[in-house]
Computed example of a mutant assay.
Amino acid sequence: MESPSLLRLLSSLTLRPSTAQLFYGESLHLSCEEDSAGWTVKRNTTIETMSECGRNWGKLTASFCRISFTLPSHSGVYWCESREGATSNTVNITITGGDVILQSPVLPVMEGAAVTLNCTTRSPSNLPADFYKDGSLIRTESARQMTIHNVSKSDEGLYHCTISGYGQSATSRLAVAAPPTTKALPTAKAPPTARAPSTSMSAPTDSAPLLSPVRLLCHLVVFCPYCISTLLLVSLWRQRSAGPEPPVSMATVQGLDDEYDDVIADVTTEHDF
């Protein structure tokens, strides 16, 4: 079995005409909308309480209730109720025997919306209407119609209107409801961008330092003796191949090695690597 709190959300009372005030002798249609199975219309008036449509008043068809001829005694609070005892929203209805009514919404108006109040007479009239809120005059409208733009909580209150020569309407309450809140949807995350594979060797840049002239000179001093020695050996080999030559003495070779060691020692002393 569904809970009463859930059933309350499944039905709402709607009126046709949708106005909080009516002239006596008009017809009124009330219905329990949406999931209306098992719902009926009830009311509280000055002469009865918890009275169900179809018993002592109105004609009930399924969840639809019709009052063909309204009377001042029909003024009161109306609502929908289920067999389990769950209730819908309540609506205050005023049936007047006077000549002026204020046509205003029967349900709360959402904040930020616009609402129009009409001051209507039983017989046609071209006279302006004065509109009041909580007993204080708001303004006079020649078209007998007042629109409130961008409704806020401060606009809640008791409203009525007057037309000279016709009289004053009954008072109706204008209710303002906060707009429903919506849960923000989670924002989708951007897919991760692919990274270029890293390499062990970085590309050379223009800022890479060049070899200094001193280091270049040291390299030449170190490697030149090797080149000279190689050339001497090649030359001796060619001469030996061409014919017998006087043998190279060990003193000559030893002299070359000593000169090479002296060069290396000088370079090492002047430039410490």
Rank of each mutant, 00 (worst) to 15 (best):
L7R: 15
R8C: 03
S12A: 08
R16C: 03
P17K: 12
A20I: 06
A20Q: 05
E26D: 11
H29E: 07
S31A: 09
E34R: 04
S36C: 08
A37W: 02
W39C: 00
T46N: 10
T46D: 13
E48P: 00
S51G: 10
E52L: 08
E52R: 00
W57K: 02
T61C: 04
F64R: 01
P72E: 06
G76T: 01
V77F: 06
Y78C: 03
W79A: 05
S82K: 13
V91Y: 03
N92S: 13
T94Q: 06
T96S: 08
G98I: 00
G98Q: 09
Q103F: 01
Q103R: 15
V106Q: 01
V109Y: 04
A113L: 12
A113F: 08
V115T: 14
R122W: 02
S123N: 12
P124F: 07
N126Q: 12
L127R: 05
L127C: 06
D134R: 06
D134S: 04
L137Y: 00
S142K: 11
S142Y: 04
R144D: 03
I163F: 14
I163L: 05
G165T: 04
Y166D: 04
T171C: 06
A175P: 01
P179H: 02
P179F: 04
T181I: 12
T182C: 03
A184E: 11
P192D: 15
A196E: 07
T199R: 14
S200E: 07
M201W: 08
M201C: 04
A203M: 12
A203F: 14
P204W: 15
L210Y: 11
L210C: 09
P213Q: 09
P213I: 04
P213V: 08
P213W: 10
L216Y: 08
C218G: 07
C218D: 07
C218F: 06
Y226C: 14
S229P: 01
S229C: 12
T230A: 14
L233N: 05
V234G: 00
R238I: 11
R238P: 00
Q239R: 15
R240F: 14
S241M: 10
G243N: 10
G243D: 07
P244T: 14
P247C: 10
V248E: 13
S249H: 10
E259T: 09
A265C: 05
V267G: 06
T268A: 13
T269R: 13
E270Q: 14
H271R: 11
H271I: 15
D272C: 02
F273T: 09
